[in-house]
Deep mutational scan, measured.
Amino acid sequence: MEVRTIKVFTTVDNINLHTQVVDMSMTYGQQFGPTYLDGADVTKIKPHNSHEGKTFYVLPNDDTLRVEAFEYYHTTDPSFLGRYMSALNHTKKWKYPQVNGLTSIKWADNNCYLATALLTLQQIELKFNPPALQDAYYRARAGEAANFCALILAYCNKTVGELGDVRETMSYLFQHANLDSCKRVLNVVCKTCGQQQTTLKGVEAVMYMGTLSYEQFKKGVQIPCTCGKQATKYLVQQESPFVMMSAPPAQYELKHGTFTCASEYTGNYQCGHYKHITSKETLYCIDGALLTKSSEYKGPITDVFYKENSYTTTIK
């Protein structure tokens, strides 16, 4: 009895394709271990004539594949690729409408935090270190965002349907971005203890939790000093293409032309909904596939993004 075979390709990165001759009487799992086709788990399936010449994702289970996976995804987590594939199996079914010149995501599976993050990423200057993220990001900007969303979920250790947080998501993504040249110098002034300067680099240099107003941050924000008295913390120097200011959701007025974009969060910790506000020729609110415009805006804002380049204080 002759062994019926077909020729397929296996890959971990969709760049390096490895030619395989597979036995049609055995499952993919018996031949390769966990195997995925377009995100779908085909591990328990036997090869079919229609699979001839198709590319299958496999887990990096030998040295060659491990090197290829690390170079593309910059992670050695053995569960990463499987999590990416199972997320992709959902995100490829989502709709990605162009809204006001940006790629958004039609609401499904509690994905409003991903839509808000995706919209924000198209408006701030950011370059990702893992080629996987950078490639998928370019495709997302062009309207094909399924891979990018699935990668975000995998890097953030999230599953489809789980509630997510924009600030946490951005923080994970910033860790995989090139923020080497970003720098922030802060000064804390206390009447009792004097003053202390701190220099922050990388992710810490672009994120701040405690106030939404970048102007206020430049002037000074009140913080408790270690001595128990009130101290003032203010920005001395900022070198970065953008800054992200966050605070627990509270009524906040966004003035046209003073910011790049913002995240609105309605609801409580267990259950809520994100919308995205962007400042173009007027203010726009993007909620999944829905767009509304207004000249002014007041609502429960939790993150505001500002364009920056270089700032030095005039406070002496």
Rank of each mutant, 00 (worst) to 15 (best):
M1L: 08
V3M: 06
V3K: 13
V8K: 07
F9M: 13
F9A: 15
F9Q: 12
F9Y: 14
T11D: 03
V12W: 02
V12H: 10
D13S: 06
N14C: 08
I15R: 15
N16I: 08
L17Q: 13
L17R: 11
H18V: 07
H18G: 09
T19M: 13
Q20S: 12
V21M: 13
V21P: 10
V21N: 13
V21F: 10
V22I: 09
D23T: 14
M26L: 11
M26Q: 15
M26D: 09
M26S: 15
Y28T: 04
Y28H: 02
Y28F: 14
Y28P: 04
Y28N: 09
G29P: 08
G29I: 06
Q30W: 13
Q30M: 15
Q30C: 12
Q30S: 13
Q31R: 13
F32R: 10
G33F: 03
T35S: 13
T35D: 07
T35G: 12
Y36L: 00
Y36A: 03
D38I: 09
G39N: 04
A40V: 12
D41K: 03
T43P: 05
T43S: 13
K44L: 13
I45W: 14
H48G: 13
H48Q: 14
H48A: 14
S50P: 12
E52V: 13
E52Q: 12
G53F: 11
G53R: 09
G53M: 12
G53D: 13
K54Q: 11
T55P: 05
F56Y: 02
Y57W: 14
L59Q: 14
L59K: 07
P60E: 01
P60S: 08
N61Y: 14
N61V: 09
D62N: 14
D62G: 07
D63F: 11
L65W: 05
R66D: 07
V67I: 14
V67G: 13
E68G: 09
E68H: 04
E68P: 03
E71N: 09
Y72L: 09
Y73E: 07
T75A: 09
P78H: 12
P78G: 07
S79H: 11
S79Y: 14
S79T: 12
F80V: 08
F80M: 05
L81P: 06
L81F: 13
G82V: 14
R83G: 00
R83I: 06
Y84I: 00
M85G: 09
S86A: 14
L88M: 02
L88Y: 13
L88C: 02
N89R: 13
H90M: 12
W94R: 03
W94M: 09
K95I: 11
Y96Q: 03
P97C: 01
P97M: 00
Q98M: 14
Q98Y: 14
V99Y: 13
G101C: 08
L102N: 10
T103K: 05
T103N: 01
S104A: 09
S104T: 14
I105M: 06
W107E: 04
W107G: 02
W107C: 02
A108T: 02
D109A: 04
D109G: 01
D109K: 04
N110Q: 01
N111E: 03
C112V: 03
Y113N: 02
Y113F: 02
A115N: 07
T116V: 15
T116W: 00
A117C: 11
A117E: 01
A117K: 04
L118F: 11
L118P: 06
T120I: 14
Q122D: 07
Q123L: 05
Q123S: 05
I124F: 02
L126V: 14
L126T: 04
K127I: 09
F128T: 02
A132R: 07
L133W: 02
Q134L: 03
Q134F: 03
Q134V: 08
Q134H: 12
D135E: 13
A136E: 14
A136W: 04
A136T: 07
Y137R: 03
Y138F: 10
Y138H: 14
R139I: 08
R139D: 12
R139T: 10
A140C: 13
G143E: 03
A145V: 07
A146M: 06
A146T: 04
F148C: 01
F148A: 06
C149D: 01
A150H: 04
A150K: 01
A150R: 05
L151A: 04
A154L: 04
Y155R: 00
N157L: 00
K158H: 08
V160W: 01
G161Q: 00
E162H: 06
D165Y: 11
V166W: 00
R167I: 05
R167P: 00
R167K: 10
T169G: 09
T169N: 01
T169K: 00
T169V: 15
M170W: 02
Y172Q: 13
L173V: 09
F174Q: 02
Q175T: 09
H176P: 07
H176Q: 09
S181P: 05
C182W: 09
K183D: 03
K183T: 09
V185H: 03
V185F: 01
L186Y: 15
V188W: 00
V189R: 08
C190D: 00
C190N: 04
C193G: 02
C193L: 04
C193I: 06
C193E: 04
G194A: 07
G194H: 04
Q195V: 15
Q195Y: 08
Q195R: 06
Q197D: 05
Q197I: 10
T198F: 15
T199C: 06
T199V: 14
L200T: 11
L200C: 12
L200S: 09
L200H: 05
K201W: 14
K201A: 09
G202H: 08
G202R: 04
G202C: 04
V203A: 13
E204L: 00
A205M: 00
V206R: 07
V206C: 03
M207V: 08
M207R: 03
M209R: 15
G210C: 00
G210I: 00
T211M: 04
L212A: 03
S213Q: 04
Y214D: 00
E215V: 02
E215R: 01
Q216N: 09
F217E: 00
K218V: 04
K218Q: 02
K219Q: 13
K219P: 02
G220T: 05
V221H: 11
I223G: 14
P224C: 11
P224L: 12
G228A: 03
K229N: 14
Q230W: 12
Q230G: 02
Q230F: 15
T232K: 06
T232D: 01
T232I: 13
K233N: 05
Q237H: 15
Q237D: 05
Q238T: 03
S240W: 00
P241A: 09
P241M: 02
V243Q: 02
V243A: 05
M244C: 04
M244Y: 01
M244W: 03
M245S: 02
M245Y: 10
S246F: 00
S246P: 01
S246K: 00
S246I: 05
A247V: 02
P249E: 02
A250C: 07
Q251E: 14
Y252A: 08
H256E: 10
G257A: 08
T258Y: 08
F259A: 03
C261L: 01
E264Y: 00
Y265K: 01
T266S: 13
T266L: 03
G267P: 14
Y269H: 15
Y269A: 15
Y269Q: 15
Q270H: 15
Q270P: 13
C271N: 12
H273M: 01
H273K: 02
H273Y: 00
K275I: 08
K275F: 00
H276E: 04
K280W: 01
E281L: 01
T282M: 09
T282G: 12
L283S: 04
L283P: 02
C285Y: 07
C285A: 01
D287W: 00
D287M: 12
G288S: 01
G288T: 06
A289N: 12
A289W: 03
T292H: 11
K293E: 12
K293F: 07
K293N: 11
S294C: 13
S294Q: 13
S294I: 15
S295E: 15
E296V: 14
Y297E: 02
K298G: 04
G299F: 09
G299C: 00
G299K: 00
P300R: 10
I301D: 09
I301W: 01
V304E: 00
F305E: 01
F305S: 06
Y306N: 00
Y306W: 10
K307G: 08
E308Q: 05
E308L: 08
N309Y: 13
S310W: 09
S310A: 14
Y311M: 04
T312K: 10
T313G: 10
T314R: 15
I315A: 15
I315M: 15
